[in-house]
Nucleic acid binder design. Structure first.
Lengths: 183, 183, 183, 183
DNA sequence: AATGAATGAGACTTCATTCAT
DNA sequence: AATGAATGAAGTCTCATTCAT
């Protein structure tokens, strides 16, 4: 006999929170909504997490860690065009993976979501690592747009262009375009 | 002449609302904040606008009208590469102009901001008009990314890349990149 | 015709808050209780005061001001026994007056009530002014006990010893005792 | 011998509760705070005590018993000035002892702390026993103030007048003053 | 053209308490 | 002897909105 598989409320909270934050935004999602969806009281959320911000932070944690790990690796690479393309490819995989779990940063650009500072720090360094050495203004902008296009592609386009492409095909097409943007 | 020097509270409301919505988002901006900033009571806002949504809608109105007018013109154009590039150039001007007033759709992607449906409709048609005839999936995606890069460029990059470029230079550089993305 | 005597909710809030804070303490008194007693919603309290602490502070304000004014006068007095006795007599009147409005610092010794710092500052200086010059430890203690006995007398004993004395008689008796304690 | 070295959580709870109740008051002290300080869960408190009130009551128990025992003895005494002074002296010792464990009734005057009724009953009878027979109103008040000064002296002054006196010296000085108040 | 006063709904959070294990 | 998970009630506070003046 094995012990009943505990319904692991904590994980359910993260799951549901993720879904609702993505769909309606952090502000618009109330703890009442989350708890009702799970079938516990609001107070139960506070048993598992200290604050609402804490829930949000925990939801981002995995994705952020994956990004930060990737950065560690990326820092060792030279700034050749080839190496930079490789970094971008790997970053694409990280994003895709994060997306797989759920569209996790639909609201990337919003200051209101807690725990975003770390995300911005990652973005900042990634941007630096993807630029050629002594990048011109134009090249710097191209790099920024490449990264953002990658995000936008996964977050928004994947949903819209819907069924006609498999995820692998979508990735390939997106990377094709994005690598053309990267200087 | 008779009319007292209009203090035009109505315009001030729009102005301040615009600024705060852009900085902190629609949800996070309270009517109290807006009214305090202007130096009137919350109730005064209700003399000029029916609801908070109404304020938001009115703030977008000008920008949206400009976009819709541009669309009317764009519809008459053929789908040649040259014509499409011209449309994009003109759209760029519209965005820039909207930006000039204030970064007005920083949170483009958010459903929570009221009056967004009309904006999405514009985006949808613009996207269609900018694609070559019988566009491939890749070409469709390129078009979407070109438009979004235009937005992102003005909304976010302009602020960051800061002082080294005049607005005209920035526009030129951005359009150079974006036209390379457009199929 | 005169305008209807506005029921002045603000004053009622202070009145009721004072009563409840005194009876049950600051912590135990909820805004719900106050507002229900007055017949308004909790939100109405927030129209008149920024926070619960604010209500408490405003309730103390008058009494504190009276004390501080008295201090200003007391500072000009010499430290003769006679002058000190006069200060104590005047302080007695201030306390009595404060009591008259309501027993306003029943919980003097509690840190939890906001706005108490100012009260403690007053106590501290009063204590200094009431001591003879170069007071011995014993004299310092006597001064402290005299002040505290004054408080305790008005706050607690007046209620208990109830009806047999008029307020004037009570004051006379209390002052008689307290002046015997003062060195 | 069999019993494991008792970690005596029960005693630690009382100890910590005492400290926190004294420092912040009963209301402001939460069971979470107590349990965290000890390093057990809140639920553990409920193994040892039925309710929060129960904890408070148990904390007062020793001091109250000491007082009640003293009362038993005091009842047998005549009402001569000498005997009454002796009672007061002994009561002083009891208070000092209670203080030694911790400042246990800093908030004496608060109704919110459970188990206070018994304490008030003791005070009431003590007050009666310390009055001369057929006491005048003034004498009754003097008695009350003497008792309260004793409390206040130990609870508040001891802390403030700090280091210059040993506990024995402090007691002597305080009793000197208080016996002058007692009629 | 605007204010002063108020409301009702709902937000986040904390608390004492319970109970199966 | 104690924990992990949860609850229900209550708390403070904020918000968009209304309405008589």
């Amino acid at each position: 006999m094995t012990s009943e598989p505990r319904t692991d409320t904590r994980a359910r909270i993260q799951e549901v929170a993720l879904e609702l934050f993505a769909k309606q935004g952090y502000e618009k999602t109330s703890l009442r909504e989350i708890s009702e969806r799970i079938g516990v009281t609001k107070a139960a959320l506070y048993y598992h997490f200290k604050t609402k911000e804490d829930i949000a932070a925990s939801v981002f944690e995995d994705g952020l860690k994956a990004m930060e790990e990737m950065l560690v690796w990326a820092r060792t690479k030279p700034r050749t065009r080839e190496a930079r393309a490789e970094i971008l490819r790997r970053y694409c995989a990280v994003v895709r993976d994060g997306i797989g779990r759920s569209r996790f940063i639909q609201q990337t650009d919003q200051q209101s979501m807690p725990g975003m500072e770390r995300f911005f720090a990652v973005m900042y360094e990634l941007n630096a690592l993807l630029q050629p050495e002594n990048a011109s203004t134009r090249e710097a902008m191209q790099t920024g747009l490449a990264i953002h296009s990658l995000h936008f592609g996964w977050m928004k386009m994947r949903a819209l262009s819907g069924g006609d492409l498999t995820e692998d095909e979508f990735e390939e097409t997106l990377m094709g375009i994005v690598l053309d943007i990267l200087p």
